[in-house]
Write a protein that binds this DNA or RNA. Structure first.
Lengths: 124, 124
DNA sequence: TTATCATTTGAACGATTGTTCAAATGATTA
DNA sequence: TAATCATTTGAACAATCGTTCAAATGATAA
């Protein structure tokens, strides 16, 4: 966390009255910093088109790694690296059947989050 | 877009029958690649705790840049850089009053998207 | 056992990101 | 006009990210 230089304490913009109260109330309602870090980390998973494409592949049913790779026209290795991140964020599950690993969506939050994003894009 | 090396065309995992149909149907339901890029770009904005904190500051009411900077204990410059990204994604608006710029949330999608994220974190 | 297949993993690379610093606008006041 | 304030902008930097390549697991079959 960097040290503040430009921002004076308690007053800025030469108006002091309103700002004090504002700062108090905002600070009170702000969630714990740890939650905000986790939140940013979650959205970082969605912040790559490859991972979003992987999630879309899993929308309908579970798919094995090499099928995902073929669908996205990518190497199995690259897909596997991204699946690792998706697993870490608990966005996908996988089960092993012999040599093959089938991946699927962990829950419905993926669909709702992506749905909200598309809504923002199309309505905005 | 990199060239596929590992993934064979049409068959993989030594099972060919089911996969062909799957690939067809997934390819048909996959959104346009441009939409997926825009979607990833949108979530990239949420993928940083500083920007999420800025959005939280704006949850209640419009706030000027130096107040945001003070609330987050950051330089005005750093905040301004991030506000630029938020503006570019149409997540915040701003209006100028004299020398001061007040920023506010552009619409309710910000709250719903962040809400979904928190839900995923707390329920998972 | 050996061989092969499906997947994972680690290191390396260029590309992107967030912050800092200094300089440049934009707007008000003297 | 000049001076000051609030904010923006550009360049630079370390840090992080996504892919590639090669090597390592994990599991099945010969």
């Amino acid at each position: 966390m960097p040290e503040s230089k430009n921002a004076p304490l308690g007053d800025c913009c030469e108006e002091t009255a309103v700002h004090e109260d504002l700062i108090e109330s905002v600070r009170a309602d702000m969630p714990d910093i740890a939650v905000l870090y986790d939140l940013a980390e979650l959205y970082r998973i969605f912040a790559d088109s490859t991972r979003i494409r992987i999630l879309y592949v899993l929308f309908e049913k579970e798919v094995c790694v090499c099928d995902i790779a073929e669908l996205l026209n990518m190497t199995v290795s690259a897909v596997s690296h991204q699946l690792r991140l998706l697993r870490g964020a608990h966005l996908v599950r996988f089960r092993r059947v012999g040599k093959v690993c089938f991946y699927s969506l962990a829950d419905d939050h993926v669909k709702t989050i992506i749905g909200q994003g598309i809504e923002h894009l199309t309505e905005g």
